[in-house]
């Protein structure tokens, strides 16, 4: 299986430029990974817009859940779409993201661990949207900004500067 890899510099640049994230497929069940990835990202200062047609009418982290990316108000600029859907459904999410948000500042499509669609990634990149697949923004944020130091994880961070 072809697996994507990204440099620390690339991931750091994406995580630093991103302000608002649409989380597609996020769960209201607090013990599901999608729920606490969203919760973590919100704690780190990102605005997280939940998107999941199953939970319309509810709120996650104080934000109303949207039925689709197209339902996000036009005055809200989404920098990144984070895809919590299986690989077979990821392509449709990417196309919806490009349709609804491609001309409204979307700069990154991020697919979670286990989620990959190389053809959809190519369609996004052709529109100038950067793509990360098979990674988790929570884990990468923890890796690159020193939180993974609680365990023996190879962060790849070598520095004699104070953090």
């Amino acid at each position: 299986m072809r697996l994507p890899s990204y440099s620390h510099a690339t991931l750091r640049r994406i995580l630093q430029r991103t302000k608002v994230i649409a989380a597609v497929g996020v769960s209201v069940n607090p013990v599901r990974p999608s729920a606490y990835v969203a919760r973590y990202l919100a704690q780190k200062g990102y605005r997280v817009i939940p998107v999941n047609p199953a939970y319309v009418g509810q709120e996650i982290g104080g934000e109303p859940v949207r039925a689709s990316l197209a339902d996000i108000p036009a005055d809200l600029r989404i920098d990144m779409v984070d895809v919590f859907r299986r690989s077979s459904e990821a392509g449709a999410v990417v196309d919806e993201a490009l349709d609804a948000l491609g001309d409204r500042g979307l700069s990154t499509v991020w697919m979670q661990i286990g989620v990959m669609d190389w053809e959809a990634a190519a369609r996004a990149e052709a529109r100038g949207v950067e793509v990360v697949m098979n990674h988790c923004p929570k884990i990468e944020h923890q890796r690159l900004f020193n939180e993974l130091r609680i365990g023996g994880f190879n962060t790849g961070v070598i520095s004699s500067r104070r953090s």
Binding site: R149, G151, G152, F153, N154, G156
Partner: peptide, 21 residues
């Protein structure tokens, strides 16, 4: 915190993603 530094160092020297001491 001290043990975690050792685990990360050995994980790095072996070229692994993580280690548990």
């Amino acid at each position: 915190p001290t043990v975690a530094v050792l685990a990360e160092r050995v994980a790095t020297l072996e070229g692994g993603v993580g280690a548990v001491a």
